[in-house]
């Protein structure tokens, strides 16, 4: 299972990666593997402000629907439109083309409260 060393991780398996002024958010490779084939993704409207831990969308796999939680507080700056036609991008490239939303962070220091790659790796049983 791959872990993006440049990202930080929430306990609910979302990652947050600072790119310029925005934070790119998706779900980890471990999370996509646990969910199985992803067949539908519901994402929020651009401009929506959400607090850390609030639901920002839903990812539906063959097996079940799972809520997505904001890893940090902020405003939705962009959503990944490519996922409407090809939700399985999240399975194939969770850290790349399968990103979910870009967030304009409300308080960048919240990133420090997320796990780094090494700590996250331990929580999912990988060193």
């Amino acid at each position: 299972m791959s872990i993006d060393v440049n990202a930080r991780y929430a306990e609910s398996h979302e990652y947050a990666r600072l790119e310029g002024a925005a934070v790119v958010c998706g779900i980890s490779d471990h999370a996509q593997a646990e969910l199985g084939d992803i067949v539908f993704i519901e994402l929020p409207a651009v401009g929506k402000s959400l607090k850390k831990g609030e639901t920002f969308g839903t990812v539906e796999s063959v097996k079940a629907a799972s809520d997505l939680y904001m890893p940090i507080s902020g405003t939705i700056a962009e959503v990944n439109g490519a996922l409407q036609a090809d939700p399985a991008l999240v399975n194939r490239e969770p850290y790349g083309a399968g990103w979910l939303v870009k967030i304009t962070p409300a308080d960048l220091s919240e990133m420090d409260k997320l796990m780094d790659a090494k700590t996250y790796g331990k929580t999912i049983g990988e060193e």
Binding site: G36, V39, A88, N91
Partner: peptide, 10 residues
């Protein structure tokens, strides 16, 4: 098995 390593959609 719900699915094999191939994955349900494939």
């Amino acid at each position: 098995p719900i699915s094999y390593p191939t994955g349900a959609v494939e």
